[in-house]
């Protein structure tokens, strides 16, 4: 850490963005803990319920978000290198990944409801639906930010403030990815 001199250190986005991100991370940490605690109260029901989730869909969604995040990181780099227009297709690709995630989730919800599962089925499904729905709301909000950013970069040069918007919005999107990275193994894999 000390290898980077203080003057080279750079806050990605505005401080307010980080207040939001750290707040969200804390909130979700509480949700994750509540889930793992509840699982410990009734491991048999949780394990049996997890059998009804498709791990394949979870993996596809993880890959979609990881790739989407990579595109956003590349977009920030392009804009910083003085090529904001090159950031646009990358941001649109990131939006595509997010929409893909949304569609897979809709298919999954539909399949579960069709099979007779609902948030009222048992504790596992209450947590599953509440946690994935909360995450999805953040994803939808993140998609609207990416939409805004993809318009913002359609010019030859960005001001420092605009570059800050891109970095901050990008970090919010990475947070959506990060939360899913924990949610996916908790709900789908850890038995």
């Amino acid at each position: 850490m000390s290898a980077v001199a203080t003057q080279e250190r750079h806050l990605p986005g505005e401080a307010g963005v980080w207040v939001v991100i750290l707040g969200e991370l804390t909130l979700f940490a509480a949700f994750f803990s509540a889930y793992v605690w509840a699982r410990g109260q009734d491991p048999t029901v949780f394990r049996a319920s997890q059998e009804h989730l498709s791990q394949g869909r979870g993996v596809v969604n993880t890959l979609l978000l990881l790739t989407s995040s990579l595109c956003v990181a590349a977009a920030v780099r392009a804009a910083r290198a003085g090529q904001p227009r090159a950031a646009r297709p990358l941001l649109l690709a990131a939006v595509g990944g997010g929409i893909g995630f949304l569609l897979v989730k809709v298919v999954e919800y539909h399949a579960l409801f069709a099979a007779g599962f609902s948030p009222a089925t048992n504790d596992f499904f209450t947590y599953y639906f509440v946690l994935t729905w909360l995450h999805l709301l953040h994803l939808i909000f993140g998609l609207s930010i990416l939409g805004f950013l993809s318009r913002l970069v359609g010019k030859d040069e960005l001001t420092a403030r605009e570059l800050g918007y891109l970095e901050g919005g990008g970090c919010f999107w990475h947070m959506v990815d990060l939360l899913w990275i924990v949610l996916f193994p908790l709900l789908y894999l850890v038995r």
Partner: peptide
């Protein structure tokens, strides 16, 4: 599985969010 998840989380934070070079 949990350990792998948190290694991934750290990589996303340090490299995608660029926290590696963020204020301490």
């Amino acid at each position: 599985v949990l350990a792998v998840a948190f290694v991934k989380v750290r990589l996303v934070g340090l490299y995608f969010m660029e926290l590696r070079t963020a204020p301490v």
